[in-house]
Computed example of a mutant assay.
Amino acid sequence: MFIHLDLEAKEPIYTQLKNEIIAGIAKQELVPGEGLPSVRSLAKDLSINLHTVNKAYQQLKQEGFILIHRQKGVVINPDGIPEAGNEEIQRIKKDLRPMIAESICRGIEEEEYIEMCRMIFREFSAKGGNRNE
């Protein structure tokens, strides 16, 4: 899996890393049970601080995307990603609000916004998507 980080972006590096790993899972470039590099190894490979990698990994663990084993290391959750419950749905809605508000402020119509969402959704679905099958 190729991880692209923009060190000049406003978005924190740990968030970018977390999002890249989630995208890899959604595209099935990373599959359940597959190992990820250790914190130190990934930090070295990406030339970033190991605490940055650790923060991304800890958030991914909390959200059920990965497991961290003392012996096995970091692995994509072998049981698949847990289905979104009410808490996750509410968090996703909350995260969408500023994007929708900005879109309205910038003159993007509802149908155009929805079509952008469909296109992005299809990008992930076309590559397999993660349906916990």
Rank of each mutant, 00 (worst) to 15 (best):
G80R: 01
K94Q: 08
N49A: 14
R106H: 09
I104G: 05
K61T: 11
K72Q: 07
E123V: 00
K55G: 01
K127S: 12
A26N: 10
N54K: 08
I89D: 11
S103L: 01
E87G: 11
L50H: 13
F124C: 04
P12R: 14
R40I: 10
E123H: 00
A26R: 09
D79H: 10
R40T: 10
E102R: 15
G73V: 01
R40P: 02
R122V: 11
Q71C: 02
K18R: 14
G85Q: 02
G80V: 06
E115P: 03
C117H: 04
F65P: 03
R70C: 00
L96F: 15
I114P: 01
N130Y: 07
Y14W: 13
M119F: 09
F65G: 02
I100H: 06
I100N: 03
K18D: 06
D6G: 13
E102W: 13
Y113W: 06
K55I: 07
N19A: 14
S38E: 11
Q71L: 12
A9G: 04
K127T: 07
F65H: 10
L5A: 00
R106V: 07
R118K: 14
R97F: 05
I81H: 06
S125A: 14
E109Y: 01
T52R: 08
A56H: 05
A26M: 12
E115V: 03
D6K: 15
G73M: 00
A9T: 07
G24F: 03
R97S: 05
L46I: 00
P98G: 02
E34K: 13
Q71W: 05
L96G: 15
I120T: 05
M1S: 14
N54F: 03
N77R: 05
K72E: 07
E109I: 01
F65E: 03
H69I: 08
G85M: 01
F121K: 11
E123S: 00
N19F: 05
I48V: 13
L67R: 15
L7F: 12
P98Y: 04
E110I: 14
G73F: 00
Y57W: 04
I104Y: 10
I22R: 09
G33I: 03
T52H: 07
E115T: 08
E63D: 12
G80W: 04
E102K: 15
L42K: 01
I120S: 02
P98A: 02
N130A: 10
R40S: 14
I108H: 05
C105H: 12
G64D: 06
E102G: 15
E123F: 00
D45Q: 06
T15E: 11
E83T: 06
D6N: 15
L7N: 14
N54T: 06
I3W: 11
V74K: 04
Q71K: 14
F121Y: 12
L46H: 00
P98S: 02
G107H: 00
Y57Q: 06
L46D: 01
G80E: 01
A9K: 11
Y113M: 09
F124Q: 11
H69T: 14
P82I: 05
